[in-house]
Simulated assay, not measured.
Amino acid sequence: MTERTESRGRILVVDDDRTNRMMLTYRLEVAGLETATAENGLKALQILRESDFDVVLLDILMPEMDGYATLDLMKHDQQLSRTPVIMMSAVGDLDSVVRCLEMGAEDYLPKPLDHLLLTSRVNHILLRIRLEQMEQRLGHVADAVTALAEGSLPAAALDQVAEKDDTVGRLARQLQRLAAVTLER
């Protein structure tokens, strides 16, 4: 999984209704999130291939390419398949909800959207992404500790983790210093 999330999440809002797009982006930006918009599935796929997003909010009923087709193409595209998608629609029947979830949607929210619920669901996904990234980075540090104990830590093994200015990055930098001293002996 590529590391996309920094301090703010990037959300792509896909809805054919301009007013809905504006209301959603406003609410998400007030919540501290970065947004971009697309008016249909074709445009969304183009934007997603040009830039990374943490979450896609995807309307079901749209012209040119509906949300079902967009979700299907995303989930069968290696580059886009791991991007979480929250489906949203005024179509509230259980069959539609089940279909979206079976196709790989992360969640399904009925319209009109409750903005607190929307923000909560998006933040939940962003937190999960950050935790997965942290776990991956800690895995690199654990592998480096094992390699250091065996006397074979490659010089650049922790460079990517050490670039971050957080606790795991500081730990990686300290481990690099320790490795330099230990392996010189």
Rank of each mutant, 00 (worst) to 15 (best):
L33T: 02
V14H: 02
S120A: 13
V145F: 09
L61Q: 15
L24C: 04
H115V: 13
A162H: 04
D114C: 09
E106T: 12
H76L: 08
K75C: 00
S89Y: 01
A90T: 05
D159Q: 10
V141G: 02
M87I: 06
M23A: 06
R173V: 01
T146H: 14
L45D: 04
S81H: 13
E106P: 00
T83W: 05
I125H: 02
E64G: 09
L58T: 00
L12M: 07
V98W: 07
K164H: 13
L80W: 03
L148C: 10
D107Y: 07
G104D: 09
E6D: 14
E64A: 10
K111T: 05
M87V: 10
A156C: 11
K75N: 01
L71I: 03
T167E: 15
E64D: 12
P154F: 10
I86Y: 07
L94R: 15
E34V: 08
V56A: 01
Y68V: 09
I11C: 04
R99Q: 12
E3D: 11
L138V: 05
Q79D: 12
Q78W: 11
A162P: 02
Q160V: 10
R99N: 09
H140G: 08
I60R: 01
M62Q: 02
H140K: 14
I125G: 02
G9I: 04
T37H: 07
R185W: 12
D95N: 14
T37R: 08
M74L: 06
A162W: 00
Q133M: 10
V30R: 15
R137Q: 03
G41I: 02
T25P: 00
L183I: 07
Y68A: 00
D72L: 12
E150Y: 12
E29C: 01
D54Y: 03
Q46C: 11
D107M: 01
S89E: 01
T35K: 00
L33C: 01
A69R: 07
P63E: 04
A36R: 05
E34F: 02
R177C: 12
N20F: 06
D114H: 06
Y68M: 03
T19N: 14
L61A: 10
L183V: 08
S96G: 12
E29R: 07
I86S: 02
L171S: 11
S7W: 13
D93R: 08
I60K: 01
M1Y: 05
L118A: 02
R121P: 00
